[in-house]
Structures are given as C-alpha cells and as structure tokens.
Design a protein around this nucleic acid. Structure first.
Ligand SMILES: [Zn+2]
Ligand SMILES: [Zn+2]
Ligand SMILES: [Zn+2]
Ligand SMILES: [Zn+2]
Lengths: 159, 159
DNA sequence: CAATTAATTGATAAAAACTCTCACATTATA
DNA sequence: TATAATGTGAGAGTTTTTATCAATTAATTG
C-alpha cells in the first residue's frame, strides 16, 4: 500500500505533478477498493469520509490526471457513469470483464487471452494495437438457473 | 432496403408496436448509414432533413425501442455519446471494432473471432455468455508512421 | 526572507446527453 | 361513432461531467 502510494508519487513527479493531500486521499481510496469498479461519485463519497473538505471537481481532476498517466483506467459498463480501476503494474493490457446481466456483478479475467487474436488483427488489418477492451455479457455462476429467458436480458445494453 | 423495412415492421408488430412514420424515418436513416456508428443527435439531424417535424425525444424513444428488441445495438466508444448500429441479421454476436487513436476511424471485424475464448469463459468461469464486446484501440493502417509515441495516445480513453 | 510566479483547490455555474411529463394527435377496439 | 390505447412534440428536469474563477498553497527568484 505505502509502496504503491510512493510509486504513484514518483509517477506524478516524473511528469511534474505533485501528490497533494487531496490526490493522495483519492489514490488511497482507489487502492483500498482495488477490486471494485468505482464511479467518480463513489470515489468522492469515500474520500469525503476521510477528507471532508475535498471538492467533487478535485476528484474528477485527479481521476482524469491518473487516467492521463495510465495509472488508472476508465471503464464504461453501460450504466451511464464512468468507472475507474487501477491498472495492474505488470499488465501490458487491460483485463477482461464478465458482466452478469441478472445481478450486475462484474468479475474479471486477469489473464490476457487475446494474444492470438491480436496477432491476427495486426497482420490481417495492419492495425497496431495499443490496448483492448473485452467484455462478456451473460449469466454468472451465481445466477445460473434463476433466469428463464436469458436472451431477453441483452436488449438495450450499451458498451 | 424495402425488405429490411418490412422485416423490421414485422418485428415491431410481433411485439405489438407500430411502425409509425417517425419510426420508419428513423429506421431508414439507420439503414442508409449502416456502416457508420451514429449518435442519437446524428440520427436526429439526418431524420430532420426528411421529416422536419420529428422531435428529439421521439428519436431517442425509437432508438431505445429498437435497442430493446435487439434490432440495433448501442455502442460506447468513450466519446461521451451512445452510438447505434444495425445488428446484422445473421450474426449471433456483436462484431469487433478497431478504433484508431490517431484519426478516430472505426473499422470492423465482421467475423466472430472469439469462439475459442468464449468456450474457455463458459467452462473456466461457469459463465453463460449472451453477448460480448471487443474493441481494439491503436493505430490504423492509414495513420501508420504518423505517430511518434503511440503509447501516449491511450491515456484517458474510456470503454 | 519577501516578493513574485505557478500550481492546485473548492464552490458553483454551465454544458452535454439523456429522460420525463403532459397535452394533444393518431390509431385501434368495441 | 364512442372509447380506450398508443404514440408524439415541446420543453422542463435530471444526471454526469466540465469550465470558470477567486482563493489557497507551493515553488522560484532575488
Ligand atoms: Zn449474476
Ligand atoms: Zn476490472
Ligand atoms: Zn487512423
Ligand atoms: Zn460496428
């Protein structure tokens, strides 16, 4: 935790940004909820618990800054808000998500399964991949059997 | 074109919805721009050319309706607006997109390359896939060589 | 250290995209 | 035709995000 904070501090100062108290509070909230996919509002409320004086705009600015530096990732699961999650230090690419259309759970595939497909994309389309997003929408193991007509669930979903 | 309209009319009436003149005008705009990825505003402006009396709310309602019936798909490419495209009649799943971070072009992989990966997801995660979204972000063949530091482009992108 | 400059913040206004409301119009049903 | 149901347009309202700006804090200069 402390090392992560220190590491991020260095990433920031490497780009001439300071790890202000507000930014550090935001970073800590993100680290403490690393497995979740928090919205800006979520982060704001959590940060406020510890630093009640922080402003919403600062949270948005911090998330944007961290995103610009590729320290965190912006996600969109089609529910109208941008969500944020830490980018794994070692991971070259973004991990994959499994979104349950019944309960809303977001599970993760942390391995990158797209290697062979990316090869095909690069050769067949002459497209230089920098990152990817892969999301599966369906029924999670928890909800299995609770859904009569799964096909009906997909309509109107985004992303 | 006319067959597609007729087919959609049947899909609507199958769910007790009417293909009103406003809905038909919206459907025709979508069909005439099938290769694009139009936003609601885009659709609205295009429909207005032919049916100036149409309201923005009606366009939103029609897109939502078509989306509910899985006649069109909602997309999010991270630019803040929902985009819409026809769902290929035969395609079981959504096709893949290649988004150029330099010029913004959106190309498509119309074949479904995810078969083997979906098998793994279903068995390893006990997750019943209904649909998927796969997007590659990078540099398209047109922009190759025009970008000095491609990694820099990814920061702050969503989806 | 004092003065100046730059970076950052909080509050709030504003923008953007989308949704809701409701009176009116159109269509279906009896 | 009467009656009910469905659909529409205009605009108000909501939600999320961004822009503005005066005030605070930090860095730099002399
Ligand atoms: Zn579930
Ligand atoms: Zn994730
Ligand atoms: Zn390009
Ligand atoms: Zn497409």
């Amino acid at each position: 935790m402390e090392e992560r904070v220190k590491q991020i501090k260095q990433q920031l100062s490497g780009h001439s940004y300071k790890l202000t108290p507000q930014r550090e509070a935001t970073v800590r909230v993100l680290l403490e909820n690393e497995q979740d996919h928090l919205s800006a509002e979520d982060v704001y409320l959590l940060v406020k618990d510890k630093s009640p004086e922080i402003g919403l705009a600062t949270v948005y600015r911090t998330l944007e800054l961290l995103s610009d530096l590729s320290i965190i990732h912006k996600l969109n699961f089609g529910d109208g808000v941008t969500r944020y999650e830490f980018r794994a230090e070692d991971a070259e690419h973004h991990h994959h998500h499994l979104i349950c259309l019944h309960c809303g759970a977001v599970d993760e595939i942390t391995d990158d399964w797209l290697g062979p497909i990316e090869k095909r994309v690069e050769t067949e389309f002459d497209f230089q991949i920098i990152d990817h997003r892969l999301t599966f929408h369906g029924i999670c193991y928890r909800c299995k059997g609770q859904v009569k007509d799964p096909k009906k669930l997909i309509g109107s979903k985004v992303t």
